[in-house]
Write a protein that binds this DNA or RNA. Structure first.
Lengths: 151, 151
DNA sequence: CACAATTACCCACATTTACCCACTAACACA
DNA sequence: TGTGTTAGTGGGTAAATGTGGGTAATTGTG
């Protein structure tokens, strides 16, 4: 589905242009309706086609709501999930609370991640990527599935 | 159903404007009739469409009333449940006792949470969110359903 | 019954957002 | 290399939304 790294500029109003190569797929897949929420592990945003998101939300809502960890996940993920539509120019207006969370300024990065995108501030993405590369080197505890993966 | 994060200002009279994108759903779902009560785990309020709340109240009332814990829940939830209607401008007047419980001042946050909303003071929400994020990271005791959740 | 306090309804203003148009840079093709 | 087309960017404007506040009706209280 979605893949690739795309440097993008946010404009003064907080809008980001979706790269043209993804637009057709997005409009056909979900009429341009998307849902953005936060990533709980990293300070970045997740961007789903509406249909994808609704499947996920169902699973999250089905979690036992008396369990504190599940409650937390519900508050964080559903609580931040915001419906977005592409405007006539193929742009999304990212709401201020989400921009603040991921500390998005002018320069951001859109990462294709299969069924979704991730949105990072460029600065944070570059730094995090370096960390990842360093950890992979020393990485001792890889799950079996990874050990056996041939590229 | 409901999702997303909405920063809102309470005015001097204690009124909050429901974001326009939710109004249609609320009016169609329950003619603008809502019920607010307190959350017993966190210092925030819960806001239900009337129909949703009535289902919940039935379940609460069905709890064994000789059980002290059940009595407590009944007193807290049903005792604080207050009927609210949107005014002509799509606003709700939050009663003083509920505002006091959740320590709501000018700046508040409305969180969509599936079948209901949560209302937080902005300050408390931001602080609580940071706690949640830290706990999710170090989270050892995640239920299986969560461990296997792929986003 | 009178008074005070609260609430509902209404209007007006400020801000934000959606929509539109225009410019520039990049690319493709001849 | 020149030209046409498309993508990305910036920004103006009208409409919608959010906010504040006045006033009349209602409620509760002495």
């Amino acid at each position: 589905m979605f893949r690739g790294v795309n440097p993008i500029n946010l404009d003064a109003k907080g809008r980001m242009a979706i790269p043209a190569r993804y637009r057709d797929r997005i409009t056909e897949h979900c009429c341009g309706h998307l849902v953005a929420t936060i990533d709980t592990e990293e300070r970045c945003l997740l961007l789903y086609p509406l249909a994808e998101w609704e499947e996920i939300q169902e699973k999250i809502e089905a979690l036992p709501s008396f369990n504190p960890a599940a409650r937390r996940i519900q508050r964080l993920l559903i609580g931040h999930a915001t419906d977005l539509d592409m405007d006539g120019n193929g742009r999304l207006l990212l709401p201020a609370p989400l921009r603040d969370y991921a500390e998005l300024n002018k320069k951001i990065v859109l990462l294709g991640q299969g069924n979704k995108f991730e949105i990072w501030s460029e600065e944070r993405w570059l730094a995090t990527r370096e960390e990842y590369l360093a950890e992979v080197d020393g990485g001792a505890e890889l799950p079996d599935e990874l050990q056996n993966l041939s590229l």
